[in-house]
Amino acid sequence: MATHLITGAGSGIGAAVARRLHERGDDLLLFARDAGRGKELTSRFPGSRALVGDLANPDRLSWALAHQSLPDRLDSLLHIAGVVDLGPIGELTPKAWHSQLNVNLIAPAELTRLVLPQLRVSHGQVIFINSGAGLSAGPQWGAYAASKHGLKALADALRQEEKPNGVRVTSVYPGRTASPMQVKVHQQEGKEYDASRWIDPESVATTILAALDLPRDAQIDDLTVRPGR
């Protein structure tokens, strides 16, 4: 039975992945920003455990994990949580930059660092849910895209560093996906939201599980998923 640590399991892609892994009987360790959120997540996925820490404050993650029990081994670390705050470069404040860089880039780097020993034991896998914005930046997307371009660099470097330890690293680049984050994006863009135009989170979850379940004689480094309509 595999053990997975998942961020962002509360909605969208993260919830779809957590549900699929839970249904097949895998053990889930669900990252939550506080104890209340952790209780909500574990009640949704019976038998799972919560790991509490604030991704918006990555400097405190080491302290938070030191006061909680981690499994001896992890088969995967799935970085799915993310935040977005659109705006032109000329108007984005340091707060907007820090919030996105902290959650989208620095927290994944720190969380990965903290659980690498468990991943090395199992020759596990790290999957970073990136974005199309991690490959190309458009107007209003500067800070978010910068955080996601950085996430790509993190994954590429980690992949080479951890290959001798048997840890696989995959980046997934979904296009626009029907999720609460996409609702927020449309609100910021001043556009009407139509979920039917975008990728179903279940479709992205299918691609993530394909990378996760790939036999050990191969690995998927980068995987791009785009809306089919």
Rank of each mutant, 00 (worst) to 15 (best):
M1R: 10
A2N: 08
H4Y: 15
H4W: 15
A9S: 15
G10H: 15
S11M: 09
A15H: 13
A15K: 14
V17M: 13
V17H: 15
A18W: 13
L21Q: 13
L21H: 11
H22T: 08
G25W: 13
D26Y: 12
D26W: 12
L28G: 11
L29G: 13
L30V: 07
F31Q: 14
A35E: 12
R37C: 02
R37Y: 01
G38S: 05
E40K: 08
S43G: 11
F45N: 11
G47Q: 08
L51C: 10
G53A: 08
D54Q: 07
L55S: 09
L55A: 13
D59K: 07
D59E: 10
R60C: 01
W63P: 00
L65C: 12
A66R: 13
H67T: 10
D72T: 06
L74P: 09
D75A: 12
S76Y: 15
L78D: 15
L78M: 13
H79D: 11
A81R: 09
V84E: 14
G87N: 07
G87S: 13
I89A: 14
G90W: 08
E91W: 12
E91A: 12
T93L: 14
K95I: 07
A96H: 11
A96V: 09
A96Y: 01
W97H: 10
H98W: 08
H98Y: 15
N102I: 03
N102T: 02
V103L: 11
V103N: 02
A107C: 11
A109D: 00
A109I: 02
L116N: 05
Q118F: 00
L119N: 04
L119W: 12
L119R: 04
R120A: 11
V126C: 08
F128L: 03
I129C: 04
G134E: 03
G134Q: 03
G134H: 00
S136Y: 04
A137W: 00
A137H: 00
G138R: 04
Q140P: 00
A143M: 06
A143D: 09
A145F: 00
S147V: 01
S147M: 06
K148L: 07
H149G: 03
G150C: 07
G150Y: 03
L151F: 10
A155S: 12
D156V: 03
A157Y: 07
L158S: 03
Q160Y: 03
E161L: 03
E162R: 03
P164S: 10
P164D: 06
V167E: 12
R168S: 09
S171Y: 01
S171V: 01
V172M: 07
R176H: 01
T177W: 05
A178D: 09
A178Y: 06
A178V: 04
S179A: 06
P180V: 08
M181Q: 07
M181I: 06
M181E: 06
V183T: 05
V185F: 04
H186C: 10
Q187Y: 00
Y193E: 05
A195E: 09
A195Q: 06
W198E: 12
I199S: 09
P201R: 05
E202R: 06
L212M: 11
L212K: 02
L214N: 01
P215Q: 01
P215W: 00
R216V: 05
D217V: 04
V225S: 02
P227W: 07
G228I: 03
R229H: 08
R229V: 04
